[in-house]
Design a protein around this nucleic acid. Sequence first.
DNA 1: GTGAAAGCGCTAACAC
DNA 2: GTGTTAGCGCTTTCAC
Lengths: 350, 350
Amino acid sequence: MNAASNAAPDAPGNGRAPTIRDVARVAGVSASAVSKVLRDAYGVSDDMRAKVTFAAQMLGYRPKTAARALRGRSYSIGVLTPGLGPFPTQIAEEINRHFAGSSYRTIIAIYGGDEHDETEGLESMLDRNVDGVILITPHIAVERLERFAASLPMVLVSRNGRGAHFDSVTDDGFAGAEAMVGHLAGLGHRRIAYISQSDQGLEPPYVLSSASREEGYAHAMADRGLAPWVVRASYSEDGGYGAACALLDADEPPTAIFAGADVAAFGVMRAAYERHVAVPAELSVAGYDNVFASGLHGVDLTTVDQASVGMGDIAARLLAERLDGRTEPKYEVVAPKLVVRGTSVPPRVE
Amino acid sequence: MNAASNAAPDAPGNGRAPTIRDVARVAGVSASAVSKVLRDAYGVSDDMRAKVTFAAQMLGYRPKTAARALRGRSYSIGVLTPGLGPFPTQIAEEINRHFAGSSYRTIIAIYGGDEHDETEGLESMLDRNVDGVILITPHIAVERLERFAASLPMVLVSRNGRGAHFDSVTDDGFAGAEAMVGHLAGLGHRRIAYISQSDQGLEPPYVLSSASREEGYAHAMADRGLAPWVVRASYSEDGGYGAACALLDADEPPTAIFAGADVAAFGVMRAAYERHVAVPAELSVAGYDNVFASGLHGVDLTTVDQASVGMGDIAARLLAERLDGRTEPKYEVVAPKLVVRGTSVPPRVE
DNA sequence: GTGAAAGCGCTAACAC
DNA sequence: GTGTTAGCGCTTTCAC
């Protein structure tokens, strides 16, 4: 038989799950002693530890999180994400991996898109007594975040601006977009359009990293004496498709389209294909995020990589530090890097 | 100002969060009365309901899940997934959407790959008192699943075999693979290789849907008098790449490669590209799952669609029924459908 | 170093 | 219909 060896026996024995009192009875000690051993609290003899550990093992005892949470910690950390797209998914997996070996468990909840929904998500994590929370691309106003963070360890991912009570980790969207414009302009493009997400209504400097990309684009264009050309769309395949259609129908269409997210760039490519505009010969396309699909042969999208630098690892480390008692805020900015692939080439001479 | 309107006021007032007793005091009633109103329990007057609702609203009261869980339900349902790949992600999002309007909250935990790790994940959900659990492609032995399911509403996704205490929803992997072989053979292919995942060690009929794909392939090949040609690899881009390399190095390489997962098919395409084997002219490629990237222009992979039929919705509905008291097991099998795209064409005449 | 007692916030009997 | 009481399983003073 190939049954996996596992410490706790399968059978709960009688009916209900064993409690700390059952362990205490078997070990011949008090319940509070068991509690102390289980939490590595100070002041237990080696003998006591051995007896309790043995009894717990024998009974297949597992502490109830709900009961612990009522007095102490829940040993759960919450990850809030607006969805399970490629970027948040990578972050979440890194966080999960980081805490996997610890006594904390990671629970992921999907909430977002707007402040109201995300606030509900955050409160629902609080209801569940999480010991800390990591928010991916949060749209919540900074004052409200500060209020929550005052009593709950919190780390933000992909949002700019230094917090008083929370930590942040974000990529330098401004620099990433600048680098892409530099690349495209260096190839000789002058009509470089940018597809941006609709305004999030967040007050500077606490904008999402994706918003600072637009600033980087505008700045880089102005630097080179080029006219910025921004069109707004949601960051989805359809959003990119619609924006590209509008762009390509212009009298003088752009020679390069830079989408603020890879997934929107995919829509751009579909629009170009349908209109018989050859990519990259007639139109260069670039994205941002370097999602898995972008690297696929056949897609081969020029983009900016922010995820692979391990923002999830950093976020997890920051939260772990807070769980250990740190209270001064930290703000970490990681450098994105340009990934030049096949969809960007010099424009055709006109 | 554009602050979102939200029911509960922001400020907790004084220090700690309001409890049911605070609400009771403000409303001028007893704590148990408040509890009843909050849970829509039987036997409360309209007047009482109004007073309590008002007081709760005013105080921004939110029930503590930990405390509720200690006595009754936790209003949390757990989703266990081996990772956040395209398929489980879609399932999880559907489940999340399904419960979003209810009083239940969905929490996702990543565990898996082997029985030991997944069992730990399942127990950790139990520790957290979830009211029900949905397991995506679980590798846990059926006896153990039954034992857990005896006291916890449980739904399995993508695993074959009817349970006594749990529900299942799975696609008909056998039929899906058969259909693909039919398509490929219909085009004229005779040397059709199949890339399968390593054996999971699960006892029939309780195998993962992906395992029944291999049976479907073998059956369909035999039906047509063709020799099955199976190579094992992990379902990843690298796994598919390695398997394809071995296949393409054969004296008489296959004219079509059918990978049991799209992501492996991507690796096949990379291997073909590196060896200057033209797809589809010299090699047809097919996958299974119809993930987002497969539909991208530039990838255009022929595949089998199982996810879009809403297995997540079905799983959520099944769990909701159990939460409402159903105990007879249900087993739902959804029909996969062939998606013919650009990577499959007739073989070159030899 | 160890145990007894109180209580976290809520729900579930049971009286009234 | 409403309030009182007890207690879920654990942690935490505080005696000893």
